[in-house]
Nucleic acid binder design. Structure first.
Lengths: 221, 221
DNA sequence: AAAGAAATTTAGTTTTGGCTAAAAATCAGC
DNA sequence: GCTGATTTTTAGCCAAAACTAAATTTCTTT
């Protein structure tokens, strides 16, 4: 039905659009490790297949069919990740590349039988929700970092405003959409907190910053 | 490492060579549903990669690396078939196309972990032996039903082709992998035979069907 | 509002794996 | 051993998905 390349584009567009950034040809190219010119070519093809709305120089976004396809790919990817970790004993950090291949195996029956076999898991080993056959998935509740629980793994999901100053600060602190962190300590005095990243660096964040950052609980952990 | 197309060529060459026929460019083309000219192109590429010995107009055969690759693909294919039937509940006649896709997922670790998870199965659901990591596999002597001895208990082990028509007929005759039967009579006139199943029903089989069905002697009986 | 910078698209090329048509080599029948 | 038939290979072309370089559009800055 759709080629591996097409599926990868659709998946990337979905993920980038969802993370709030305005998706540009350049962003998409760097996300897919390819060149902007290649992206333009593919965007036209995807539009011709009704997966995408695209107007040149203006921008693009997924059409309903594209969104449906994206969710179906994500469903396959996350089910396979769950299988690899829970049944085959892989570590959750090892499974991404293998799932990238498995997700392109085309068979709706396979996906659904795998889902049944695994017991309809609702979250993959990274804590991301698994869409059902209809593309519905658990919506991750966004929590303000100031209100988030201590000691649990959190994932940065969004920011409240897009000011240059905030984005600059996030960059400096190595915080981005998808960054995983744990709140180690919170000081009542000024509402600042100490936070540990997955890379094990620990640093402190002010209340002001904490107020702007929205996170989700990593459900798998 | 190797492309899907390359893997499919190697697998086809292995299967055709093993079934004894002298493998010609034409045969290979029809087996792969492609044209002889395309086959010639690919043969050159496979030779350049040291998977094949090839001399133009003379013929070709797998080189050691090619044989190793073929066995590794077959291992993956048959392990996935076993998984699909035993774990996901597919019927053994439904799994071929899906396994054709899964067999091209590249990860030695995946294959070996799947093997462990499945408990090192030695035969796939069609009765074909599964090679181990080193490419060794059970050599189960398969006898064509046409050549099988009278009066001895036989076990249906495999079929020569996977056509829908054949599978449909086998289903109607209640023949499946593992079915035990005894040849009661054979008619020289048209090579048809009378066969008794364990359930005691006796029926006759045409030479055409007999040619497609492979059995093993039940050594225990 | 214009100029320079940045992003995007077009044009033309490459690689992989296929195709058709034509040429070359081998095989079969006499 | 020749001649025609068959098989195999070559030559040239196509489509997908990438690339580079150049052109075009939009954005930024003054």
């Amino acid at each position: 039905m759709f080629s591996v390349a097409e599926e990868n584009y659709i998946k990337s567009i979905y993920h980038l659009q969802r993370s709030g950034y305005n998706v540009s040809t350049n962003e998409l190219a760097s996300h897919l490790q390819t060149k902007p010119a290649s992206v333009t070519d593919m965007l036209k093809k995807l539009q011709a297949k009704n997966l995408l709305h695209y107007e040149k120089y203006y921008g693009f976004k997924l059409a309903p069919d594209g969104r449906k396809l994206a969710l179906s790919i994500i469903r396959r990817h996350r089910l396979w990740e769950y299988f690899l970790v829970e049944k085959l004993g892989f570590g959750w950090e090892e499974v991404h590349d293998i799932a990238e291949q498995l997700e392109h195996v085309q068979s709706a029956e396979l996906t659904d039988k795998l889902d049944v076999f695994l017991g309809h898991p609702r979250f993959d080993p990274h804590g991301d929700p698994i869409p059902d056959q209809k593309g519905k998935m658990e919506s991750q509740k966004l929590i303000c970092l100031l209100d988030a629980p201590l000691g649990k793994q959190l994932i940065v999901a969004a920011v409240q405003n897009q000011s240059v100053e905030l984005l600059e600060m996030l960059k400096a602190k190595r915080l981005a959409i998808g960054t995983k962190l744990i709140i180690k300590k919170r000081f009542a005095f000024d509402e600042s907190m100490e936070v540990k990243l997955s890379g094990n660096d620990v640093f402190s964040l002010s209340d002001k910053l904490g107020r702007e950052v929205l996170v989700t609980l990593n459900q798998a952990s």
